[in-house]
């Protein structure tokens, strides 16, 4: 399998990228690590006329931490974020999920924003972004805007990104005192696509569970912490409208939502308690 022909431009500045996207009339695609896009090119599911390589744009290669939010630039590779010494301290859910992305051999090249752009329904980063109420930072020559994750992911591998827009960064809230996190993925082998993946955030106000791999996009719900939890999980399981596929039946996926979903929200609550103890000492 070889890609169809395309032209290639190695951009040096964000302006070059935006200019190329603007001029191409929807025929250009951004390439970063290429770990989602190149398979699509090889299988000729994507046939862009021009690829704009953003990995040499210095302005896009940073992780910014202003104390309240982590902003991850479009050029930041998954493995680099995984290996940063402070990722687990600054946003534990990100650190929990990163080892589950593909394999080390794809994380070494793949970027955080590239996975967001690809919007695979079973991918971990769209799930984490949804669970954390993260934002996608979009920029074109016309405008800059930020979309909440749930508005950005509009369908299976479909997003609200306009053809001339670059995903410049994604941002997530930094860890907050009194908040607990949990992540779990069910797949046949580590590194395979998730049959279902779970990310939970528990703070003093709410318990939020996001689920990937079941519906066409990651979905999040605020759940009760009292005896209504099981009923709420059952409703969530049916609302996701799971479908049968090669990997698992819809019924099995609903059961995962009920059982693993319960375990993951309880794990997030325990994590909150453990962090509160640590903060107190």
């Amino acid at each position: 399998m070889k890609p169809a022909r395309f032209a290639y431009q190695r951009a040096a500045t964000t302006e070059h990228v935006l200019e190329a996207l603007h001029r191409s009339g929807g025929e250009a695609r951004v390439i970063a690590g290429g770990q989602s896009l190149v398979p699509m090119l090889n299988m000729r599911l994507a046939r862009p006329a021009l690829l704009v390589d953003i990995m040499h744009v210095a302005a896009l290669s940073h992780v910014d931490d202003d104390g309240a939010r982590l902003t991850i630039g479009a050029g930041v590779r998954q493995r680099d974020l995984e290996m940063r010494h402070d990722t687990a301290a600054r946003q534990p859910l990100l650190a929990m999920a990163l080892p589950w992305l593909g394999h080390v051999q794809t994380r070494s090249r793949g970027t955080v924003c590239g996975s967001i752009a690809h919007a695979d329904p079973s991918a971990e980063l769209p799930l984490v972004l949804t669970a954390l109420r993260g934002e996608v930072h979009l920029r074109s020559r016309r405008r800059a805007r930020r979309l909440p994750a749930e508005a950005f992911f509009t369908g299976m591998m479909v997003t609200a990104r306009a053809e001339d827009e670059l995903i410049e960064a994604v941002s997530v809230p930094a860890v907050r005192p009194g908040t607990g996190y949990a992540f779990r993925e069910i797949s046949r082998r580590h590194g395979d696509f998730a049959i279902a993946a779970f990310a939970a955030v528990a703070d003093e106000k709410e318990l939020r569970l996001a689920i990937g791999g079941v519906a066409e996009t990651p979905k999040a719900r605020v759940l009760p912490t009292d005896q209504g939890l099981d009923d709420a999980l059952d409703t969530f399981a049916w609302n996701l409208e799971a479908r049968d596929d090669l990997h698992a039946s819809a019924r099995y996926r609903r059961e995962l939502v009920r059982r693993i979903g319960r375990e993951v929200v309880l794990a997030a609550i325990r994590d909150r308690e453990a962090r509160a103890l640590k903060e107190a000492t």
Partner: peptide, 15 residues
């Protein structure tokens, strides 16, 4: 590639 294991089939020569 630059010290890290990576898929040659998911990398363009020009990259």
């Amino acid at each position: 590639i630059d010290g890290a294991p990576a898929r040659a089939c998911l990398t363009l020569a020009v990259q």
